[in-house]
Measured scan of single mutants.
Amino acid sequence: FHVTIHVGDITFHIHGVSEEEVKKLEELVRRGADWREIKKTIEEIEK
Rank of each mutant, 00 (worst) to 15 (best):
I45T: 03
I38G: 00
F1A: 09
V22M: 14
E37Q: 04
G8H: 05
V3F: 12
R30V: 09
K23W: 10
V29M: 09
I10R: 13
A33N: 02
H15A: 12
E26R: 08
K47N: 12
R30I: 11
E44P: 00
K24W: 10
E43T: 05
V17M: 10
V3G: 05
T11P: 03
V17Q: 02
V7G: 02
I38S: 00
V7P: 01
E26Y: 15
A33W: 01
E26N: 09
T4G: 02
H2L: 10
T4K: 06
T4P: 02
G8M: 07
D34S: 09
V22N: 04
F1E: 07
G32N: 07
I38D: 00
E44R: 04
E19Y: 14
L25C: 01
R30W: 07
H15C: 10
H13Q: 13
G16D: 12
V29E: 04
E27H: 06
E26M: 14
W35P: 06
F1K: 09
R30M: 14
E44Y: 05
R30N: 14
K39L: 14
H2M: 09
F12H: 04
D34C: 10
H2G: 07
D34T: 09
E21P: 01
H2C: 09
E46G: 10
K40L: 09
T4D: 05
L25G: 00
E26I: 10
V29Y: 05
L28D: 01
H13V: 13
K24N: 07
L25I: 11
H13S: 09
K23Y: 12
H2I: 14
K39F: 10
G32I: 01
D9P: 10
S18N: 08
F1S: 10
E26C: 13
F1P: 06
D34I: 02
S18W: 04
I38N: 00
E20N: 10
I38R: 00
E21C: 13
H15Y: 15
I45E: 01
I10P: 00
V29P: 00
K23N: 10
H6V: 12
S18R: 09
E43D: 11
R31H: 09
D34M: 02
H15K: 12
E20F: 12
E43N: 05
H6Q: 14
I10S: 06
T11M: 07
L25W: 01
V7C: 14
I14F: 08
E27K: 06
H15V: 12
V7I: 13
K47G: 10
E46R: 10
K23D: 07
I42P: 00
L28N: 01
R30S: 14
E19P: 10
V7Y: 14
D9H: 12
S18H: 06
E20K: 10
G8S: 06
I38M: 04
I14V: 15
I42R: 00
R31A: 14
